[in-house]
Write a protein that binds this DNA or RNA. Structure first.
Lengths: 216, 216
DNA sequence: CTCGTTGGAGAGTGTCACTATCCTAAATAG
DNA sequence: CTATTTAGGATAGTGACACTCTCCAACGAG
């Protein structure tokens, strides 16, 4: 398959494919002559994944590169590769340590994880989800700065929902064949179910709001 | 309160506050002299909300302006204002109608909403969550293009979790005093709980991945 | 042989969220 | 009452990001 055909089959312009090749998001094709290269189904699949991560999952090109690299790193086991990939995902601004709301938020987050039996070290050492922990602290701090209650009791239902969702996610992952496919699936599902989840919540809120507030 | 004090109390630079004033995210202060203006607690509160929406909720300045405007629009009821605000939230690329995966995704989304008893018109007419519906379709299409199963059966647990979360959200909203406070709360909670939810899911996935895959 | 096409490289584009500079007028120190 | 600092407003500039355009030499179909 030539560049033009890869472009036609993926719906991505040749200019953008060249850009991804340059940025290392797509491995180079097999060089046929000095001015031609051959691409295969693997390239098509990878390209679709990259596109989905960037366009639907809204992750920056640089993060996508790191995520892709983690997927292929043979030196790590499944859990480590997934952790490294998750680590590379965008996660907003770091908590502002000069703010006392952050300190309180950190205590709330710790108490929540304690109650759920989640491992803090899971969240603090590589490879795992420390950025997600920072993201949680930042968000809790912002909410409490605005005066909204955001303590362990309020957060627990969200965390329980997250637990159930994670179980669904990994059930889906385990149904994939090889470990390589499983890591790819885990990353793709982590990223691409985020908009699914957010849009479902917004739709559910609209529904619930209609039920409670319509006409008020 | 002068600009400098507003800046000090909010932690936002005077340059940025001036920028927000220009962009209409913050109503002008009361003019004292030709070169001085006076700001009150309302400005501080608004500024904190804007900052949280932009930095934590990652919504663009232009969307934030629309959201803020919807909050204050006295012509609409609670449900309508919330719908208008939600409508202004970022929601990724529109579904690609030239793609047949989109068509299938739309059928899946419709079937899911049917099964949950959610109202499609709720999602399609203003004021409500049509962008969220488009976002859902786009994400489902991307997943199925990558070959991941994404039918009503797989989606239902996510939707059920979303329903429970929406109930928690609106319980919190109803605990706020005046209708004006309630709309603001609804928007703030919609936007600011998104990172909470996403980070909790990532943490839960890390936990579940450790349980299942560590060492594999 | 010729003329459109291909792959590669570098520069350019549009958007976004600020940020730096400038200017005038007002407050304040001496 | 002058001199110096500071405030507010307008305009232009910055840096990151995700492409997108332009150019060029080498293929290759007719």
């Amino acid at each position: 398959m030539r560049l033009a055909e890869l472009s036609a089959r993926s719906g991505v312009s040749t200019a953008t494919i060249k850009f991804y090749l340059r940025e290392g998001l797509l491995h180079p094709g097999r060089r046929v002559t000095a001015t031609q290269a051959d691409y295969d189904e693997g390239h098509l699949r990878r390209l679709r994944l990259v596109r989905a991560l960037i366009q639907v999952g809204r992750i920056p090109v640089s993060s996508a590169r790191e995520v892709i690299a983690a997927l292929q790193d043979e030196r790590m086991d499944l859990h480590q590769r997934l952790g490294t990939a998750t680590w590379a995902l965008p996660h907003g601004p770091e908590p502002d340590e000069t703010d006392q709301a952050t300190e309180a938020a950190r205590r709330t987050a710790d108490a929540l994880m304690e109650r759920l039996g989640w491992h803090r070290d899971n969240a603090c050492d590589r490879p795992s989800a420390a950025p997600a922990y920072g993201m949680l602290v930042t968000a809790i701090a912002a909410l409490s700065r605005l005066g909204y209650p955001c303590d362990v009791e309020h957060l627990e239902p969200y965390a329980r929902a997250a637990e159930r969702i994670a179980v669904s996610d990994l059930d889906l992952v385990e149904r994939c064949g090889t470990p390589d496919e499983q890591v790819e699936a885990a990353v793709a599902l982590t990223v691409l179910y985020e908009p699914v989840l957010l849009s479902l919540r917004r739709l559910a809120e609209a529904e619930e709001s209609r039920r409670r507030f319509d006409g008020k």
